[in-house]
């Protein structure tokens, strides 16, 4: 609220750094320092760091290294996500552009999208069994739903004036769609790609917790069973960081592709 930045900023940055340091110190104090919590309830920060480093090369206790789990997760998540985007974007655009299709499909879609991605896991496992396919299908559905919603609203938000401008220049319906509506929907489509990625990644973790033999979700679930909380926490951290990195990649691509900035 108040003005005066510059010098003030540094003061608050210092407070932030201090706050994190105090937090980590308290964490250390209640674990290693005073031994209030044992490592099967709350492992110390030191232990978590050690495990994080060791787990890259060590397959015990769950049969795979951190890298193998990460790769397994990425393969499923990105596979399902990409196909979901490939199907979801055109579907959303088509729904928004064609009024009849919109009115026919919209209510069905509104019903389907209220179903959380995880809920499909049981259906897919029963249909195709535990494995790559069932998880990829679940992720496909959750990514596709997010893609359809965003590209749909992107097209719907096309300014009527822009369409009129196109029409005065004699553009055909196809021209209007590809030269006016889709470019103006691009920012929303990229928002959709970001949102879909988030929901694909979350759904993946859920699917792996439920039905899997490899992957980060599987790893933390196994570690939970044998009270290796250090591995659980390492797994959560890797899940969070990977999710954040993937999302920032999508955003970088979005900034490159969407020229002229995002008009609000």
């Amino acid at each position: 609220m108040k003005k005066k930045q510059g010098a003030r900023m540094d003061k608050y940055l210092l407070v932030s750094v201090l706050s994190v340091c105090v937090g980590i110190f308290v964490w250390w104090l209640v674990t290693d320092g005073l031994g209030l919590f044992r490592s099967n309830v709350l492992p110390s920060p030191v232990k978590v760091c050690q495990t994080f480093l060791k787990k890259w090369v060590e397959a015990r206790p769950d049969g795979a290294t951190l890298l193998q789990h990460l790769m397994a997760s990425l393969k499923v998540a990105l596979g399902g996500y990409l196909i979901g985007a490939l199907v979801g974007i055109p579907l959303g655009i088509f729904m928004a552009w064609n009024d009849k299709v919109d009115m026919l499909v919209r209510p069905v879609f509104d019903l389907v999208r209220t179903i959380p991605g995880v809920a499909w896991t049981s259906v897919m496992v029963t249909l195709v069994g535990i494995g790559y396919m069932s998880k990829a299908l679940v992720i496909f559905i959750s990514a596709m739903v997010a893609m359809v919603i965003n590209s749909y609203s992107g097209i719907k938000q096309t300014k009527t004036v822009h369409l009129w401008v196109g029409q005065t220049f004699g553009a055909s319906n196809w021209d209007l769609l590809t030269r006016v509506a889709i470019p103006s929907a691009l920012p929303m489509i990229f928002t959709g790609l970001d949102v879909a990625l988030g929901s694909a990644w979350t759904t993946l973790v859920a699917a792996e917790l439920l039905a899997s033999t490899r992957g980060l979700g599987f790893m933390i679930q196994q570690a939970r069973g044998i009270f290796r909380l250090d591995i659980v926490i390492v797994g959560m951290v890797v899940i969070a960081i990977t999710g954040a990195i993937l999302s920032s990649i999508i955003r970088k691509i979005g900034d490159r592709v969407v020229k002229g900035g995002r008009l609000r």
């Binding site: 099967n40 973790v205 917790l209 009270f227 659980v232 959560m236 899940i239």
Partner: peptide, 17 residues
């Protein structure tokens, strides 16, 4: 720091706690 962790990924930890 904590927000990027999907809520579902907290499940194992919450079961232990």
């Amino acid at each position: 720091m904590l927000r990027p962790i999907p809520p579902i990924a907290w499940i194992p930890l919450s079961i232990i706690w």
